[in-house]
Design a protein around this nucleic acid. Structure first.
Lengths: 113, 113
DNA sequence: TCTCTATTCAACCGTTCGGTTAATCAACCG
DNA sequence: CGGTTGATTAACCGAACGGTTGAATAGAGA
């Protein structure tokens, strides 16, 4: 699967987003990360694997602990991706938006919905 | 499912992101949207349903056509969400980042990985 | 060594996903 | 009306998902 799809898929789960939020406060072990959730440790381990493959975390090794660290690069990627569409929500781009729509609507029907 | 998860899940598919890109150029019918893809019209219809339930598109009615229109609000939402983590990738926030990590690493081990 | 802790791997289970084909609905048009 | 076009719905299929339990691995420590 492509990189962007992997990241979006990883973020499409509240548990995984909560894990990222926790990691924003600093590194944490699997047990620490699992503590707030009513699911098994193994389930959390799976979530971490998904986050790792999406490049959203990296895991080190400290004795028998595997400290997880947030990696923000993919988040920048999706922020940049969404920013492509900024003109569709940012009112400062309203005039440009209007202009583009007018350009495109020349043929089928000129009326606005 | 929560709103944000719906949006992320909808975006976790290249076909659906391509549909959104197409809609950035203006409204389009299902057939027009389906044309570039090597999948059936029904499959595209399903994708549109997913996008609609995520609030990323709205569909009108023009005779037997169902023109689709991009709705950017959820994209603003995910951009805002990602922006929470900006300090982890934006170099202008490096000092703050360092500071926060130092604060947090007081207990288990002070060494960096 | 034996044991305890931290974590992962393996197998399984029910649900969802992305696709298919076939049938149906909706609206125009002769 | 009947036929055609545009789009959705229904039923199905294999793969992936999110969870489980149980077994295995890695390292600390007595």
């Amino acid at each position: 699967m492509d990189r962007l799809s992997l990241v979006f898929a990883a973020l499409a789960d509240p548990t995984r987003r909560a894990i990222l939020a926790r990691l924003a406060d600093g590194e944490a072990t699997v047990n620490q990360l699992a503590e707030p959730f009513p699911i098994s440790l193994q389930a959390v381990s799976k979530h971490l694997k998904v986050l790792e493959q999406a490049g959203l975390i990296t895991r080190g090794r400290d004795a028998q602990w595997r400290p997880c660290r947030l990696e923000a690069a993919p988040l920048r990627d999706i922020a940049d991706w969404a920013d492509q569409y900024r003109r569709f929500w940012d009112e400062r781009y309203d005039r440009l938006d209007e202009y583009l729509r007018t350009l495109q609507e020349q043929g089928p029907d000129t009326e606005e919905k």
